[in-house]
Amino acid sequence: MTVIKETFSEGSSLLHRTDPRLKLVSAFLLACVTAVLTTIPGALSSLIGALCLLFLSGLLLLQVLKRLLLVNAFIGMMWLFLPFTTPGNPLFSQFGLILTREGIELALLVTLKSNAILLFMITLISTTPTVTLGQALDALHVPEKLNFLLLISYRYLEVIFQEYNRLAIAARVRGFVPGTSPRTYRTYGYLLAMVLVNSFDRAQRVYQAMLLRGFQGRFYALHEFHISFTDWVIAVFMITLAILIFLADKLLPVFYTA
């Protein structure tokens, strides 16, 4: 059993081969542009752009859709509230609840924006293996300590998860069945505390081993990034996409309402 399956980072598509620094910056740019959109045509064009990237990334559509469905839970909850809590033209009213056109539009806007940003993240960031991402962040001058923290956390996720699993199996073998009771919570508490104590001890050993090998406070990346011609083309494409989304948000609604 593994915690992290970096399914999206495996592949050899155009986007998988693109310079990770470029992908990080583009993802950030496109996410920020999308986050400030205020109209449905704008959000829709952002989603269309994101779908184009999904096509370029060659990821399995079904896999991505499954992931999107899972993380749309929060947005789903918004659909329970927004259509009724937004003032505007009533479409339908029953049991004192008023469903408004503006409410549905707001919920739709939020859904489109959210999924567009998620797709940008999947296609541009999750298509890079985490270690390469760390090197890219380093090249982008993210503070060394923070980057080191990221890489070491990533490195030990799996180890600690295995440790937790070992203890959880031991508890199960002794007849522990989780339920809603203080006993369950106490057992989880002891389990977690043991995981923390083991992690702390491990951290001491790891640090000593690192010092022994001449650790000086940073990871050295042997890999150097090179921006190829294709990368430049992609960079231009990303910037154009961001501008188009922004313009669509400002200009398209004129036709939309007319």
Binding site: L150, L192, V195, L196, R202, M210
Partner: peptide, 14 residues
Amino acid sequence: VPTTGILTAAFFVA
């Protein structure tokens, strides 16, 4: 940093 990193991983698991 190593201790903080490994504890971060532990909280992620939690």
